[in-house]
Amino acid sequence: MKKIRSKFLTAVVLIIGIAVMFPVTNAFASTSGSTPVNVAHRGASGQAPENTLAAFDKAIEFNADYFELDVQMTKDGKLILMHDTTVDRTTDGTGAIKDLTFEEIRRLDAGSWFDQSFAGETVPTLGEALDRYKGKIGILIELKNPELYPGIEQKVADELLKRNMGTTDNSDIIVQSFNWESIKQFHEILPSVSTGVLISNAQTIEGKITNEQLTSFQTYADYANPNKGLLDQDTVDRIHQHKLKTWPYTVTDREWAVRLTEWGVDGIITDYPILINMPASATTIKTLVERFEGKELSSTEAHSLKVHLTAVSQYEEKGLHEKVIKHMNGFNTLLNQQKENGLISDRAFNVLLDEATFLIGKW
């Protein structure tokens, strides 16, 4: 019996020792102990053309909890998904959405601007997105520039009701807008659907979200979703004190993701869902490299980066501090050489450099 007890105590000491040497790290262990809802901004728009089915598919592939989309209305009253008021930036066409028919917009290429591998991607309708993803992932619907499209609130409500998505059982649908009057109107039409107010710097009082504003939001919204730069611990706490949730936008780097989580935000709207559901590590950076590979850097360049990261992963497991930093500095040097030689896109370079710099700082 004494031998068994002795072996048990030895095992416990060994386990505790391992835990001290190699602590489990969770980049998103907030002060409240909760993990933020992971919201893919315009789909996984860091790695697929925004507001397309390809981007929404990536959001599911990358394990986001929700994806966000932007709804606007064509000349002939069709609800289509696009961020800008014109088609110029994200398609091969030109002109204002409100001046073009659905068929004119449907013929446009909405993928090539991002990468040629997405050539032929079309502009989807709201109905197509709802049909394709209903029950598979949460959908955050933004009414974009609703002041340009009289009646858009009713049209969006009709699309939801047509699919039985306007009931209290459908908490995976949220409708938001920077136009607070539009959200008030939508709430009156379909009060069973959760709503949110988006908040820009220009909508604050001297750079602050006031208690008066929050009290007003309470009457018709469930979420106060500001630009991330408007938040601090006090503001997050005040939002919660007003019985509202907050999903700030738009996070593209690890430092902001960690900061917001420590403040206790309820969700994070991000171009890169991986920043929310995977901790900072060489394995995470390697996954990002693989997602950029073949589109924003060649397989040869990706392989060179992954060689460094494979070594770093082994050193991380062994807790070899100096070797991790040495090889990550080598990774950054190689990354900068690829950038100087035009072998990697600006987007991929910035994301990988931010993540690598964060990892070095962590160690």
Rank of each mutant, 00 (worst) to 15 (best):
H242Q: 04
T195P: 01
W247N: 13
L214Y: 00
G264A: 03
D237H: 04
K228V: 14
K245C: 14
L260A: 06
W256F: 12
L230E: 02
W256T: 12
A202T: 12
K208N: 11
T195C: 14
G229A: 10
K243T: 06
Q203Y: 01
D253A: 09
K228N: 11
D253Y: 10
V265A: 07
V251N: 05
Y272N: 11
P248H: 01
V197N: 11
L230P: 02
T219D: 01
T270S: 08
T204D: 10
W256H: 14
T235Y: 02
G267D: 03
A221T: 08
R238G: 09
Y249N: 02
K228M: 13
T235C: 01
G229F: 13
E212N: 04
T219W: 00
D222A: 09
Q241W: 08
D266K: 07
D232R: 00
D222S: 15
W263E: 15
I209T: 03
S216I: 10
L214I: 00
I209W: 10
Q218C: 07
T270Y: 10
T210G: 01
L230G: 01
T219G: 06
E262Q: 14
D237N: 02
D266M: 09
G264N: 05
Q241E: 12
K243Y: 01
H242E: 13
A202N: 15
T252D: 15
T210P: 00
D222L: 13
G264I: 00
Q233T: 08
D271G: 04
L244D: 15
N201T: 13
L231M: 02
T252Q: 07
A224C: 10
T261L: 10
T252M: 08
D266C: 14
I199T: 01
V251G: 01
N201K: 10
G267N: 09
H242F: 15
N225Q: 03
T246Y: 05
N227M: 09
I268W: 11
T204V: 02
L260I: 10
E212L: 15
N227D: 10
W263D: 06
V258C: 08
E206R: 15
N227C: 07
F217D: 04
S216V: 05
T246P: 04
D253F: 06
T235Q: 12
S200V: 01
T250M: 04
W263C: 11
T246F: 06
I205V: 12
H240R: 14
G207P: 08
D237I: 03
T195L: 15
K245W: 07
I269P: 05
W247A: 02
V236G: 03
E262I: 10
H242T: 11
L230D: 00
P226S: 07
Y220P: 09
I268H: 06
K208H: 08
T261C: 04
T261M: 02
N211G: 09
Y249G: 03
T195E: 03
I239F: 13
I268D: 03
T195W: 07
I269W: 04
Q203C: 12
V236A: 02
G196Q: 05
T195F: 06
R254E: 12
A221R: 08
R259A: 13
L260C: 05
T252E: 15
N227G: 06
E206C: 14
A202C: 10
V197L: 08
N225K: 13
T252L: 12
D232K: 10
W263S: 12
P248W: 07
A224H: 03
